[in-house]
Amino acid sequence: MTNLELQKAANEVRKGIVTAVYNAKSGHPGGSLSAADMFTYLYFEEMNIDTKNPKMEGRDRFVLSKGHTAPGLYSTLANRGFFPVEDLKTLRKLGSYLQGHPCMQETPGVDMSSGSLGQGISAAVGMALAAKLDNKNYRVYTLLGDGEIQEGQVWEASMFAGAHKLDNLVVIVDNNGLQIDGKVEDVCSVYPIADKFKAFNFNTIEIDGHNFDEIRAAMEKAKETKGMPTAIIMKTTKGKGVSFMENQAGWHGKAPNDEEYAIAMADLAKIEEELGKAGE
């Protein structure tokens, strides 16, 4: 896909995020929006997947270690064709297959249940190890929050991945700089992030997480890198695309009201219009 096509797809993903969280009256829009471009790139461009056969044996795997941003994953899966976009409105509702945090038994396309921070990366490491044990060439991607890397288990998993040279594993850190209680450097600084992964024997790449050229280049570099896992640390804007949510820790886990929803959708419609013009 061209960058413009990816941008358009990502904008649709963002609409789905806002709509899902608005209808649920709860959920996590901020970190879903910051990672929307990465979600889009992974599912529309990078990963070997089959929407008709979500459990295809040799597929690439994705683990959403920052499981609270399930709306981002669900909206991506829906827009990619795993299930109807309309169903995003059932998020968090009784009987819905779209649980508050990802559930692999409920939702087509979800490779691992997650939500308790720090645990998803270990499962991703296990998947990458399984590929190595079986001499299979599928790749494994996992997305972590920058607040999440305060969890010790992240570093247990990273130590293992580095030690076992899991070059089929890509760990992506969504560095939007904010967590529930404020800025990550104020709550308990996680910086420097890249140096930490480097020390755990990772190939590290720092990019702008809203720039598809940089995302593409990082993914290609990851594939070329042998003998070590790759960590992509992407600088992002929490709440990206919705004017009043951008860079606001308060929008980590809160749903927009009617008025806010209208503004958010207008913001995204405007982006859509601009992308339409860019394509002319």
Binding site: M112, S122, A123, M127, A157
Partner: peptide, 26 residues
């Protein structure tokens, strides 16, 4: 030896790795 994995002193990570392995049929 090829079917034994020592995860080091990190039980929580070992548990998560096992979960990931199980999703892939191990």
């Amino acid at each position: 030896p090829d079917r034994h994995i020592d995860c080091g002193i990190a039980e929580c990570n070992m548990t998560g790795i096992a979960a990931g392995l199980a999703t892939c049929g191990k």
